[in-house]
């Protein structure tokens, strides 16, 4: 069980043969800015083009580089109209990040769709706002097993871990392409050729291995669910009762402003008498910065949380 590629059981999956019917095949690639979503969708589009299929690929630029949500629709077949996939009609949702996969799950065809997802978790600064003791990141705590109750065919794999083990974390999306290649009926060699042409020469070999790894894994997936890379803190931390109170000795404060500028929660101000005052006691997390930095010992924090040694 040392292989990072541990997964769930694969249920029935639809193999969409190119050109089999007039309905378009829909692949939705999702992830976070900078992960290579657009790159993956370009490879798929090029493969379709080589097979003389109509293909439309749609994406949104502009915010993509700035760590925001990135998605790319790829549709191919004999006749393709809309450049975007209607919700509920994606044959494959390929997610490069766990929470992004969950976000776009509603696009998946509930009966025949394949959900391929990297279990790596990218927690943005925005999700790190609950700074109170015991606070949890604003990141979904759902597990692979919970999703599997609704979606038995979920293909959840630690592609990033696998790629890191191969020696290049950036090959994670090639691992995912390997898994994707089992859900679309293009020959494996065609994928390999295209990927080799799209990556720097020195990484061709590592990408070939990454592709084979993903493909093998999807064809013969292990039966255990992979661990998501962040675990919730122990219950003892979550239930931490907090009560903090700032005691300010007005007579000792000379209005030097140090605590006001340092307070990470920005809840201290100087009042009209140039004496520090707490504006929002509820925002105070008890971090003790003001207490420690005050040159005049004018601030004391009373906390129910014992100070660690």
């Amino acid at each position: 069980m040392n292989s990072p590629l541990q997964s769930t059981v694969v249920a029935e999956r639809r193999h969409s043969a190119p050109g089999e019917s007039t309905a378009a095949t829909n692949v939705l690639v999702v992830g976070v800015g900078g992960q290579g979503v657009i790159m993956i969708s370009k490879v798929i589009a090029l493969l379709c083009q080589q097979h003389r299929l109509q293909v439309k690929q749609s994406e949104v630029h502009g915010m993509a580089k700035r760590g925001g949500v990135v998605f790319s629709h790829v549709r191919f077949g004999e006749q393709v109209y809309s450049p975007t996939i209607p919700a509920g009609e994606a044959d494959v949702v390929l997610a490069l990040e766990w929470a992004e996969g969950l976000r776009w799950l509603k696009y998946l065809n509930p009966e025949t769709g394949t959900f391929i997802v990297d279990t790596q978790q990218i927690v943005p600064p925005f999700a790190c706002r609950n700074r109170k003791p015991g606070g949890l990141p604003g990141y979904d705590q759902l597990t692979v097993d919970q999703i599997r109750t609704r979606l038995p065919g979920i293909l959840a794999l630690d592609a990033s871990g696998a790629a890191t083990e191969l020696g290049n974390p950036k090959a994670a999306n090639t691992v995912l392409l390997g898994a994707l290649s089992t859900a679309l009926e293009f020959p494996a060699e065609g994928w390999q050729e295209l990927i080799a042409g799209a990556v720097p020469a020195r990484t061709v070999e590592i990408n070939r291995q990454a592709f084979n790894m993903g493909r093998e894994w999807a064809l013969h997936p292990p039966t255990e669910a992979p661990r998501l890379d962040k675990s919730p803190p122990p219950a003892s931390v979550q239930t931490l009762e907090r009560s903090v109170h700032l005691e300010i000795t007005d007579a000792w404060c000379k209005g030097c402003d140090i605590c006001v500028k340092t307070c990470p929660e920005r809840c201290l101000v100087l009042n009209a008498h140039q004496v520090v005052e707490i504006t929002d006691p509820g925002a105070c997390t008890g971090c003790r910065m003001c207490e420690w930095l005050c040159p005049d010992f004018a601030i004391r924090l009373h906390s129910s949380i014992p100070e660690p040694e």
Binding site: G67, K106, P110, F126
Partner: peptide, 22 residues
Amino acid sequence: PVLMLDTTELDIEPLVRPPVLC
């Protein structure tokens, strides 16, 4: 209505992931 994956029981809360300064 169109058939969509019923994830209501799973209670998926979309993560707030706005674009940020690099």
